[in-house]
């Protein structure tokens, strides 16, 4: 793209499209949409972060997990959301640190969970979680038992030393329940890990995962923006501004942009 539209052109284009969006699409409104799309600078959502496949992953301070537990989590989450040449996976995204911090804090301690007995751990799934463990206890016991299963069944090796298809075989066995753990139904452990992994890949990066907003960039979610009032009726226009984290010091300012005394703009042209 070579030409840049002026702010005035942009407002004109938005105005045309804003009216036309309530009626069936026409060639001219499509063109207006394209103009607006091309004026979005810099293109950021949809762009992968700078990342070297296979490079060692930075690991932050661990608050709850010990080193061996961390090696297990890092290997497992990378199988749940694996890296590709262009888009890194859960390990690069910092999902280990996300899970560790969650487990060290209120969530891990079972805050806002009802934890009184009696305990009926083999309840039907419709009745939900019925184990006695807080999430932190579930991980601690569950990781130990999965590691014990792996060393017993894979020639004394650790989970993180298996090759990828074999790791997937273990994870599938936990998911289906075909691997039986001594202290918990294995699907409960697996589903908790899967849910927390997805959270860590897509939650705001202030929680330690979703590094450089990689999860958001990958799908095209712009994060913590506060308004799309002038864009919502522009159909098929890719939103290409950089995503915003709640920890971004400029975020509060970015919200207000476009809603000043001067009137509404769609705020797509600058950040």
């Amino acid at each position: 793209m070579t030409e840049k539209l002026s702010r005035r052109d942009l407002l004109k284009a938005a105005g045309v499209a804003g009216v036309a969006a309530t009626v069936p699409e026409t060639a001219s409104t499509e063109a207006a949409h394209q103009q607006v799309a091309q004026a979005n600078l810099p293109p950021a959502v949809g762009q992968p972060p700078a990342y070297v496949p296979g490079a060692p992953v930075e690991r932050g301070v661990l608050f709850f997990l010990n080193d061996e537990e961390a090696r297990f989590i890092e290997a497992a989450v990378e199988r749940l959301i694996p890296a590709e040449p262009e888009w890194p996976g859960a390990a690069w995204a910092g999902v280990l640190n996300f899970i560790d911090r969650q487990l060290a804090a209120a969530y891990g301690a079972g805050a806002r969970m009802y934890l009184k007995g009696p305990w009926i751990p083999d309840a039907p799934p419709q009745q939900g979680y019925q184990l006695r463990y807080t999430p932190a206890q579930l991980y601690r016991i569950g990781i130990a038992e999965v590691r014990a299963h792996v060393t017993a069944n894979y020639g004394g090796r650790e989970f993180w030393d298996l090759n990828a298809p074999v790791m997937d075989e273990v994870l599938s066995g936990l998911e289906s329940g075909s691997i039986q753990l001594p202290s918990m139904p294995s699907p409960v452990f697996f589903e908790t890990l899967l849910a927390n992994t997805v959270e860590g890949f897509f939650a705001d990066p202030v929680y330690g995962g979703n590094r450089e907003m990689v999860g958001w960039r990958m799908v095209g979610f712009p994060g913590a923006y506060a308004q799309y009032v002038d864009l919502v009726e522009l159909y098929n226009v890719p939103f290409t501004r950089p995503p915003i984290s709640i920890g971004d010091t400029g975020a509060r300012h970015a919200y207000l942009e476009g809603h000043t005394q001067a009137g509404h703009t769609h705020g797509a042209q600058k950040r």
Partner: peptide, 29 residues
Amino acid sequence: SPTMHDELKFDVRHAYAQDVSVQTLSFRN
């Protein structure tokens, strides 16, 4: 804003919902 726009805190961890550690329901089909 911007801290209100936090899916994990409000949607996943239920910041504005009832604290079931104090009081909950029991359930059966």
